[in-house]
Design a binder for these strands. Structure first.
Lengths: 135, 135
DNA sequence: CTAAAGCCTCCTCTGTAGGGGAGAGTCAAG
DNA sequence: CTTGACTCTCCCCTACAGAGGAGGCTTTAG
């Protein structure tokens, strides 16, 4: 009935280290311990593991996932919390994407400018004329 | 003529810690040391500091900036290297942006789906029906 | 019975750019 | 001469999700 950490890891397609880590930080607690201290898991551990991965895949961090699971374990429906989280994360992503896009555009224009410059006319006093210290 | 670290930091608008760190990793070496071991800098340290910041601002890392500076200090023109770096960084950014955009789209669609779901019909066996473990 | 494989805890390390603070030496002004 | 500001080196800490390994039990197969 109960499986040990190695079997769970293998069936989940992950490492023992990861499962142990999830136990430690509280996203996937071992249901119980054997007499000798071995972690024991039931079938549902596999589902829970998949949930953790699915949540990670949409950009949630383990700390947030732990909170979702804690809510659920207290018998509350974490949906509201999750929707909030998702909304905020999407907004953060928008901001981050805009930042990166601006950076990329700057890099591209630097690149174009650099191709028009003659390396031999590089000012020896500057480190590199491609990168403008804006002065 | 020579200024000490505190003056440089203040004129550069940064912290002494940062300047010391730049010295240590080699992006902004102190020109010399006083008899008592104090770092001494000339006026050009300010320019070099600005270059470092400008390079950071376009997304280069200090390790890369150090290489650019090392090239320059060996008397070579780092332009080619910089152009390469910039090109690669831009490509990386494109990939990263695409990744984040895909994630954001998934979050948005999750969000829309969640709003249509009734929280009261949440399957108690699942942690949260908003996040689909695919399975 | 024994060796191999599995499991345990605890510790350190990864990358990035520094921040915080201890303990000690140095420099200028009063 | 002393006090306070400045500087030095050295060491630990941050976020994130584990990976790697040491040293020591436990379990299982032959």
């Amino acid at each position: 009935m109960a499986m040990r950490i190695g079997e769970l890891a293998e069936r989940a397609g992950t490492s023992v280290k990861t499962i142990r880590y999830y136990d430690r930080i509280g996203v996937l607690k071992a249901e119980e311990r054997s007499e000798s201290g071995y972690r024991l898991y039931g079938e549902d551990a596999l589902d829970r593991y998949r949930f953790v991965r699915a949540a990670q895949a949409v950009g949630l961090r383990l700390g947030e996932i732990r909170e979702i699971i804690a809510l659920r374990d207290r018998g509350e429906t974490p949906c509201g919390f999750v929707v909030d989280l998702i909304g905020r994360r999407a907004a953060e992503l928008d901001a981050r994407i805009a930042e990166l896009a601006a950076l990329r555009d700057e890099l591209r224009s630097l690149d174009r400018r650099a191709r028009r410059l003659d390396p031999r006319r590089c000012d020896p006093r500057l480190v590199c004329h491609v990168i403008d210290q804006g002065a």
